[in-house]
Each structure stands twice: as C-alpha cells, then as structure tokens.
C-alpha cells in the first residue's frame, strides 16, 4: 500500500527553522497558560490545536485513562461528530489504547494496517476520510496516564524528529494535567485525574446550555466560552459553572 502517495514532500512542510521557531513560541504560549488561574481543559484544547499545527495533522485529541483503565476524551481539536466517534471507539481498541497499554508511540499507521489491527476502529478511520493515524503515550515517569491521538487526511509519516516533538507535546499535556507537584503520592494522582474528567463533563454541559440559549451550534458556543474566558482572564471551568448556575449573563457570551 505504501508508495502510492509520497508523504510530506519538503515544500509541504515548513522549514525546520520555522518549525523550531513556531515550536518555541508554542511552548511559551503553553507555559503562559500554566500559571495562575490555570484551567486544565482549556489548556489541553490549546495543546490539541497546537499539535495539529506543528505536526501537520488534521485532527488531534488527548485521551486520559480513568482508574479503571478506560480512555476518555479530554480535549480535541475538532468537535466534528465523526472525529469524536474515532476517539470514543478507543474505549475498547485502537492506537491510543495500544499506546496506553504498551507505553510506546504507535505511529504512521495506514488504513490497511488500522483495519487489520482494530476491526471496529479501522473502518471508522476510513469513514472519517483519514489516511494515517498516530498515538503518543502520555507518561509520568514509569506510569502511562493516557495518549495523544493524531489523524491525517493524507498519507503521512512522522520523522524521528516529529516523533520526538509529538512526545514533547504529550509530555507537556501530562505536566499540565498534574500541575500540583506532589504527584509522587498515588492518591494525589488519582484525585487529580478523576477531577479533570469531571471538569470536562461540566464544560460539555455548559456548552450545551449556551448553544441552546443562543440557538447556535455547539462548537460556536464553545468558541464563545473560550473567548470570554480569555478576555476576562478566568478559568474556563469557572465560566462553565457560572453558565450552569445562572450567575453569568449569557448575553455576554453571545457567539459571534
């Protein structure tokens, strides 16, 4: 199957210099969000978008394992139903689950390989019009807590440098998730991971309320929430909670 399309010809990708500059900039942006009033879900959405850009992918998602070892989507670069489906299918099988269980990157998987390895997930990749999939483990020392997933429409290959870069981005996601330093304690880790999962659900509920209130699509409601959170310098989760309990005037969050 290989060789039909030549992946990533040089003129398609930015030059190494530009990539490094953009990478540095991205790290600074991300570090900037890691300070006070930090919101982990907002941060992971930024990271997903940054990963798409830097790794020349079309969709990215960050999946976190709960204590039962099941993967849940925490943030994605796209709200498109078919893309969401691809993340959700990986409760049971797929590259993220493999990367999570084995603790190693699963990269450059084409459609045929995907369909052979994961009979339910593979066809969904094809149906989503993607051609290549990667999964990078999110590691904390010797523990794997989840995986970053990348989807490409074209057939593409990550170079060694790209794999290092994507691992660096996955590591940043881990750092962001475990912002408290005391994670050597197992129970603190468990508390934080469960907290992040619940925080994501709160944000989904608020997206729905805002979308229904203004009669707009969910992604537009989410964009308005994030813009408002940025503009007012408040954590996204707080904004979500105030939308839900009615203390925030939703007119202030009118989607553009």
């Amino acid at each position: 199957m290989s060789g039909i399309i030549e992946p990533s010809t040089p003129h398609e990708r930015p030059s190494t210099m530009v990539t490094q500059q953009r990478l540095l900039q991205a790290f600074v942006e991300l570090a900037d969000t890691l300070v006070a009033d930090f919101d982990v879900i907002d941060f992971l959405h930024t990271l997903a978008a940054t990963s798409v850009e830097l790794l020349d992918a079309d969709a990215a998602g960050l999946m976190l394992a709960d204590q039962r070892g099941e993967l849940h989507l925490l943030a994605a670069s796209s709200e498109e139903t078919r893309t969401l489906e691809l993340f959700e299918l990986q409760h049971h099988q797929g590259p993220c689950l493999d990367a999570y269980h084995q603790g190693v990157a699963v990269v450059n998987v084409d459609l045929d390989t995907a369909e052979q390895r994961w009979p339910a997930f593979g066809p969904a990749v094809r149906a989503g019009n993607f051609s290549t999939v990667h999964a990078i483990p999110m590691r904390l020392r010797d523990e794997v807590i989840g995986a970053m997933n990348l989807f490409l429409v074209r057939l593409g290959k990550l170079s060694e440098g790209d794999i290092e870069l994507s691992q660096g981005l996955a590591d940043i996601a881990t750092i962001g998730l475990l912002q408290e330093r005391a994670v050597q304690q197992q129970q603190v880790l468990a508390e934080q991971l469960q907290g992040a999962l619940n925080s994501r659900v709160v944000i989904e509920q608020a997206k729905g309320m805002l979308a229904a209130h203004h009669d707009v699509a969910v992604p537009d409601a989410f964009a308005a929430m994030r813009t408002y959170a940025r503009r007012t310098g408040r954590p996204l989760s707080n904004v979500a909670i105030e939308i839900i309990d009615g203390t925030l005037d939703q007119e202030q969050l009118r989607p553009s």
């Binding site: 989507l73 659900v201 989904e204 608020a206 729905g208």
Partner: peptide, 21 residues
C-alpha cells in the same frame, strides 16, 4: 455513556425544557 454529545445534549435539554441538569 460518558460521551461529549450526551453531556452537551443534557445542557441543551435543560434550557429547552427549563429544568435542572
């Protein structure tokens, strides 16, 4: 089912039907 659509729909229904989450 812990899926984004379920939680989004919950929020939408709360507004449409004027009930709690």
């Amino acid at each position: 089912h812990d899926r984004p659509e379920v939680h989004q729909a919950t929020g939408m229904i709360a507004v449409q039907a004027a009930v709690g989450l």
